[in-house]
Design a protein around this nucleic acid. Structure first.
Length: 489
RNA sequence: GGCCCCAUCGUCUAAUGGUUAGGACACCACGCUUUCAAUGUGGUAAUACGGGUUCGAUUCCCGUUGGGGCUACCA
């Protein structure tokens, strides 16, 4: 059975690149009935953020990427751990790592190192100056093991390094990139256990991926060059290594690595801005992958059916917001209006708009603007004119440009005519046919009637059509606005 | 500095030896339209460069250039 994992560090929030990694991992698991696991890699105490895990889970659940195992949420949204391979938070697994480190030391595959950070820093500088590959010189390898243990017990600060052979080369196959070979002499004696007793990433991933039964590691390209270290660790433990796929990076517009400085990178930023999870998922899925034909709109279900790692590209992709906007508009239009209304409500609240209308009416109001807006967050502002009688400020230039007197006369006549509507006749279809016929009868031009009508109803230069607005406003409010406009100009 | 990865329109990408190099976003023009949006039609725009291999290279090989990643007791 295929088992994938997403293993973020709780350093703040879920990065959009992380979301894509999580999505691909989720897809690979789901399309074969496998499992998708979430593990929290919090071995770096300095970068640890208290609510980091909660934030990541929030974004993941928002997107619908629910883990089958590991760190998850219960119905109340509290963080829990599920599965029989736990704990799934690395800081709770310290004894496990210690046990495997000791095994490595006993077999001679790892050793104590007492070198100071200053010494290591200086070593690197000299190596670089002499155009040599940087790396530990292995001087503590010579220290006798029992002697080293004694020094460590006495409280001398030390780390554990893995013993990397300096001859031969490591060859491995990446699911996306194919065969990769790296000379072993270039691979460092990596620190696997830090002086604070926490493992480094390299030891912890290997141990955890093995113990948790991970079959496919899907992660960012930044890990590609540390694969030989991991492979050597698998070999030392006598374990079979999982398949690996290293994803190309997401980039800024200038092709540098996607960074905070050049725009929003946190999934929660896009949630706040009113993007739909469907759009974000579809968008990030297509950064590096496509089905090979010309279809572009893919639901999570579609992706599960059609995604495949061998169609993932090798080159990095620019995170292009214009395309995201387009996806969002597509999904905004597709959404059933009741669903759209529910999802829009929090954004009215966020904008400080108290909703006094019923859902059905709110749905009608939102429908007015759903095709004119890019995100949910733009909705409250876009429909503001429905709630408040407009002051017509922004339309002043347009009134001046046209013949205001003629427009006023026409509006007055139109108003008289509209009085004859009964409340239940007041709907788009009736308004359209009746006003249309009326215009013909009177011998007016469409534009000379519809334009002043629309502007007096909306109070805006640009807006939905007059019939739609009138329908939403109702007879009484529509006529009041026409009167206001007549008096104003 | 060293090592690794990568390279098709501005952007996301299709085309795995033979295509007028296709699609989408963005942009422009025109149509529809009371405005905006939406929509329809059309258009501008790419194989980084240099060598090979081949009857034939976007495609295979080598080099150059450019970009990115790693090079931590961070992940």
């Amino acid at each position: 059975m295929i088992k994938t994992r997403f293993a973020p560090s709780p350093t703040g929030y879920l990065h959009v690149g992380g979301l894509r990694t999580a999505l691909y991992s989720y897809l690979v698991a789901r399309q074969t009935g496998g499992k998708f696991l979430l593990r929290i890699e919090d071995t770096d105490r300095e970068r640890f953020v208290a609510d980091g895990t909660a934030n990541i889970l929030k974004s993941l659940y928002w997107a619908g990427l629910i883990p089958d195992e590991g760190v998850t949420q219960d119905e109340q949204g509290a963080i829990i751990q599920t599965g029989d391979k736990g704990p799934y938070i690395q800081s709770e697994r310290l004894e496990i790592y210690r046990k495997y480190v000791d095994e490595l030391i006993d077999k001679g595959y790892a050793y104590y190192c007492f070198c100071s950070p200053e010494k290591l820093e200086e070593m690197r500088m000299i190596q670089q100056k002499n155009k040599l590959p940087t790396g530990y010189d292995g001087c503590c390898r010579k220290i006798d093991c029992t002697e080293a243990k004694k020094r460590a017990l006495n409280g001398e600060s030390c780390v554990i390094r893995m013993n990397m052979p300096k001859d031969g080369e490591t060859v491995f196959n990446d699911e996306i990139r194919g065969e990769i070979r790296i000379k072993n002499e270039l691979i460092d004696d990596q620190v696997i256990l830090k002086s604070d007793g926490f493992p480094t990433y390299h030891l912890a991933v290997v141990v955890d991926d093995y113990l948790m039964g991970i079959t496919h590691i899907i992660r960012g390209e930044e890990w590609l060059s540390s694969v030989p270290k991991h492979l050597k660790l698998y070999e030392y433990f006598g374990w079979e290594a999982p398949k690996m796929a290293h994803l190309p990076l997401l980039l800024n517009a200038d092709k540098s690595k996607l960074s905070k400085r050049q725009g929003d990178v946190a999934v929660e930023d896009y949630i706040k801005k009113g993007y739909l999870p469907e759009a974000i998922l579809n968008f990030v899925a297509f950064l590096g992958w496509n089905p090979g034909d010309e279809r572009e709109i893919f639901s999570l279900e579609d992706l599960i059916k059609e995604f495949s790692l061998d169609k993932v590209g090798k080159a990095g992709s620019v995170f292009n917001l214009e395309k995201l906007d387009w996806f969002n508009q597509q999904y905004l239009r597709k959404l059933p209006v009741e669903d759209l209304t529910e999802r829009a409500k929090p954004f009215f609240k966020q904008a400080g708009v108290e909703l006094k209308v019923e859902d059905k009416q709110l749905a009608k109001i939102i429908s007015l603007e759903r095709e004119r807006v890019i995100t949910l967050a733009e909705l409250p502002e876009a429909v503001k004119f429905v709630f408040a009688l407009p002051n017509y400020e922004s339309t002043l230039p347009v009134w001046k440009k046209s013949d205001a007197n003629e427009a006023k006369n026409i509006l007055s006549e139109l108003k008289e005519m509209l009085y004859n509507f009964s409340e239940h006749q007041w709907n788009i279809e009736n308004l359209e046919t009746t006003i249309g016929e009326w215009i013909k009868e009177k011998g007016y031009q469409n534009g000379n009637v519809l334009w002043p009508l629309r502007v007096s109803l909306s109070g805006q230069q640009n807006s939905p059509g007059p019939y739609e607005i009138a329908d939403v406003l109702g007879k009484e409010e529509s006529i009041r606005r026409i009167e206001t406009a007549i008096n104003k100009f």
